[in-house]
Design a protein around this nucleic acid. Structure first.
Length: 570
RNA sequence: GCGCUCGUAGCUCAACAGGAUAGAGCAACGGCCUUCUAAGCCGUAGGUUACAGGUUCGAUUCCUGUCGAGCGCACCA
């Protein structure tokens, strides 16, 4: 809908440019948008104000001039005016507004989708929690954000892939294996002591038990000498079990990945050495000594020459090491290889969802990717801020050590997937979030999931009534929808496709829940002030059924994008 | 010390790529169920958008600085 108005305006601007009022070439961007204030019409444009400088006319005069050029013979707009400092406001014809109702119903589940991103392949990588333990709530937030962003790209016409990067290489994997072996040994009656840094938690015992169940005493010999690396098969066994848990936990909050990418394969296939070689050829690798960081020094800091990548040439603050002191690759080196691999898979856009604690990595990864591909904006990293668990306003203590650690699973079991997802998505990712378990289960307005779902269920209830009374949509006369309340409700439905597009472009899923809450609110108000079913006026009742059916469709579609259910009864 | 993310009503948060009078919910107070789901609706109150400059027709939004919060700062992930 907005597109049509945009074309109307741009046609006039081009014409004025041809007449020599504006200079040749590119003009500054003006906008066509939906005004906040309803009295300002359905759409408005700031074109006259933006272009006033070039026309050397005052904004309002220019607006008047433009307004006179609008074609008179169309059925879209029935009134337009110049307002305020020079806005041009468009008021759509009522006929055109009403027409959106059947349009929406016809589009059904597809309503709101666009081909905005047609032909573009986008990959969203998210969660990527280490397979060394259960997921916590912070992972959950990243998971839900990533999933919703992926959905937004999908409904706006992009081809989307969801990928999970498995950090199955590096020291922590060995620690996991050793921890499992220790618990395994314990199961056979041997006394053990958990060394510093190992994972003592209950889930490790569970893994040890299933290892014993499968392999019996097979690893007892290995469990005696724990100085070296644990057997690869034990490590793999442990990680597969944990990944299985992660997978099923993600499934309980409605998240499914298309692709699971193993970091280990980068090492085993020599991808990391290859990428270092490529960077070397570009002259971006050197052996050097880093300045010690200012502020508090790490205790074991020692100055030593390292293999460094010149990330400073791409905006980073210092150059970054690629090799550890023992000669193995750093996490960063693997990450470069990983991102290059993603780029080579032919995506037009890569999106990473990271926890805020990884924020310091953004510049160096983007730097490396730019150096390798020459593309500056291939990768977008969305940082998701921390989640503070709270119960009734009191912080919930969390510590991995004492096992007072609240897992994502526990939270989902307590408050339900819908509430978890909705609450996570009703905040912009940039803001840290207090997740109150008490509020999350409360069925009040504190908890907008229920507010939106209730509107949806309510509409279903009306339809159940309508069936009993023998009133159906086919008896409705659309033209009977004439109150401002009704037209405003339709207008709101009409903006849904634009909302999805804006949310996708800005990677801001939180706009969707906010929209749904507003739509639900408009509906509830309408419901309370208008009788929908009136046996004495079936054409009107049918028309109103058509209207709320369209509302129901949009609520359903919106909840679906968020991965939240739309119940028919509550 | 440096970098990133922030700072909006008493609380939790919005403000749609710079737009017109900064909006919701909660908490407080007062109303609405013999009629389609009261998990709902209506009303009252609440603000120097942390602070100071700048850019322009116009700034919560962009730039600079100050103050404050969170996260990070060789070799872990």
């Amino acid at each position: 809908m907005r597109r049509i108005i945009e074309e109307l305006v741009s046609g006039i601007v081009r014409q004025l440019q041809a007449e020599g009022l504006f200079p040749e070439g590119v003009l500054p961007a003006y906008k066509v948008e939906r005004p906040r204030d309803k009295s300002h019409g359905d759409f408005s444009t700031n074109a006259a104000m933006v272009l006033t400088r070039f026309a050397k006319i005052r904004p309002r005069d220019l607006a008047e001039k433009m307004l006179a050029m609008l074609p008179a013979d169309q059925k879209l707009v029935d009134r337009w005016e110049v307002a305020g400092p020079g806005f041009i406001n468009f008021h759509l014809a009522k006929e055109r507004i009403r027409q959106m109702v059947p349009d929406i119903l016809q589009a059904g589940k597809q309503y709101g989708e666009s081909n905005f991103g047609a032909g573009r392949r986008v990959q969203v990588e998210f969660v990527s929690a280490n397979p060394t333990g259960p997921m916590h709530v912070g992972h959950g937030r990243g998971a839900v954000m990533g999933d919703a962003i992926a959905s937004l790209f999908s409904v706006t016409g992009h081809t989307v892939e969801r990928e999970y990067y498995i950090n199955d290489a590096g020291a922590q994997v060995g620690v996991l294996g050793r921890s499992v072996l220790l618990r395994y040994r314990e199961l056979f009656g041997h006394a053990i002591t958990m060394p510093e840094g190992c994972y003592p938690a209950a889930y490790v015992i569970e893994i040890a038990k299933s290892l014993r169940e499968r392999d019996g005493e097979r690893w007892l010999g290995d469990s005696e000498q724990l100085g070296g690396d644990p057997p690869a098969e034990v490590v793999r066994f442990a990680m597969e079990q944990i990944l299985g848990w992660i997978r099923s936990e993600l499934a309980t909050i409605n998240i499914h990945f298309d692709s699971w990418f193993s970091e280990q394969t980068l090492h085993s296939q020599g991808k990391i050495e290859q990428v270092i070689e490529q960077l070397t050829q570009k002259g971006l690798i050197y052996e050097g000594v880093l300045e010690p960081p200012k502020g508090k020094l790490p205790e074991d800091w020692e100055s030593r020459p390292q293999l460094l990548f010149k990330s400073t040439e791409y905006g980073d603050t210092v150059d970054r090491p690629l090799k550890k002191s023992d000669g193995s690759a750093t996490y960063f080196a693997a990450d470069i290889a990983y991102h290059l691999d993603k780029a080579q898979r032919g995506f037009d856009q890569l999106i990473d969802i990271w926890g805020a604690d990884h924020g310091g990595y953004v510049k160096r990864v983007k730097a490396a990717l730019q150096a390798l591909t020459g593309q500056k904006n291939l990768l977008d990293v969305e940082l998701v801020q921390m989640v503070n668990l709270v119960r009734g306003g009191v912080p919930v203590k969390m510590s991995k050590r004492d096992g007072t650690f609240v897992t994502l699973k526990e939270v989902v079991e307590e408050v339900g997937s819908d509430a978890v997802r909705f609450i996570f998505l009703t905040r912009s990712g940039g803001a840290s979030l207090d997740f109150d378990l008490q509020l999350a289960v409360s069925k009040s307005n504190d908890n907008p999931v229920y507010y939106v779902q209730y509107a949806h269920a309510r509409i279903h209830a009306v339809f159940r009534q309508a069936e009993q009374k023998g009133i159906g949509v086919e008896q409705g006369e659309l033209s009977r929808l004439e109150t401002e309340d009704e037209l405003n409700l339709i207008r709101q439905l009409g903006s849904y496709p634009e909302l999805l597009e804006a949310a996708a472009i800005n990677r801001e899923p939180h706009r969707v829940p906010y929209y749904l809450v507003e739509l639900a609110s408009t509906f509830h108000t309408y419901y309370n002030s208008h009788r929908i079913l009136d046996e004495a006026d079936v054409p009107l009742s049918g028309a109103r059924l058509l209207l709320i059916s369209a509302v129901r469709q949009v609520l359903f579609n919106g909840l679906n994008v968020l991965g939240v259910s739309a119940p028919e009864k509550m």
